[in-house]
Simulated assay, not measured.
Amino acid sequence: MVEDEGIRRYVAHFILWIGIAIVAFPVYIAIVASTQDNALIANGQMSLLPGGHFFEVYYQTIFVGTSGSTREPVGNMMLNSLVMALAIAIGKIAISIISAYAIVYFRFPFRMPIFWIIFITLMLPVEVRIYPTYKIVADLHMLDSYAGLSLPLIASATATLLFRQFFMTVPDELLEASRIDGAGPLRFFWDTLLPLSRTNMAALFVILFILGWNQYLWPLLITTRDDMQTIQVGIRKMITTTDALTEWPIVMATAVLAMLPPVFVVVAMQRLFVRGLVETEK
Rank of each mutant, 00 (worst) to 15 (best):
P26E: 10
W213L: 04
I239H: 04
R179H: 12
F188R: 07
L161R: 12
F119Q: 06
P50C: 09
S99D: 03
M142T: 05
Q270R: 15
Q36V: 02
I62L: 11
M252F: 12
A12N: 09
G68A: 07
S69T: 09
L260F: 14
G51Y: 04
R187S: 14
T224I: 00
M123L: 12
K237H: 06
Y58G: 03
K237G: 05
Y131M: 14
I180F: 02
A42D: 06
Y131C: 00
I7K: 15
H53M: 03
R71T: 08
S178F: 05
G234H: 06
F115A: 11
M259A: 15
I29N: 06
R225Q: 13
H13L: 14
V137Y: 03
G212V: 00
L153R: 08
S34P: 04
R164C: 03
P50V: 09
F54M: 08
G212C: 05
M84L: 04
L260M: 15
N214A: 05
V278A: 15
I250E: 07
T230P: 01
I20Y: 11
E72L: 02
E247T: 11
A85E: 02
E56N: 06
W17I: 11
V137D: 00
R271C: 14
K237D: 04
R107N: 14
K135G: 00
A87C: 06
A147P: 07
A159F: 12
A203V: 01
E72Q: 12
S145M: 09
P132S: 06
L161D: 09
M142V: 05
K92A: 08
R187M: 06
I130D: 09
S99T: 14
A147T: 11
T254W: 09
S150M: 10
L40W: 08
F25C: 07
L151H: 09
P125K: 08
L149C: 08
K92V: 00
I95A: 08
R236T: 10
K92G: 07
L48V: 10
D243W: 11
G91V: 10
D227I: 06
F188C: 11
P171Y: 05
Q60M: 06
F108N: 09
L162G: 08
K282H: 14
F106V: 06
L257C: 14
L79V: 09
L122F: 12
L208E: 02
H53P: 01
W116C: 07
A100H: 01
P195K: 03
I239P: 05
F166H: 13
S145F: 10
A147N: 13
S156G: 10
F205W: 02
I97W: 02
L245F: 11
H53K: 10
E3W: 02
P195W: 00
A12M: 10
I20R: 02
V267C: 15
S47K: 12
R179D: 13
R164E: 08
E127V: 11
T223G: 00
L86K: 02
S96P: 03
N38P: 07
R275M: 15
L196T: 00
T280N: 15
Q229G: 02
V32P: 04
S67A: 05
S150T: 12
P132R: 02
D191E: 07
T61R: 05
I22T: 07
A39D: 12
D144N: 15
G212L: 04
Y59T: 14
P109M: 06
F188E: 11
S145H: 09
R275G: 15
M238G: 03
M142W: 13
D191R: 08
G68S: 04
L161P: 09
W218Y: 00
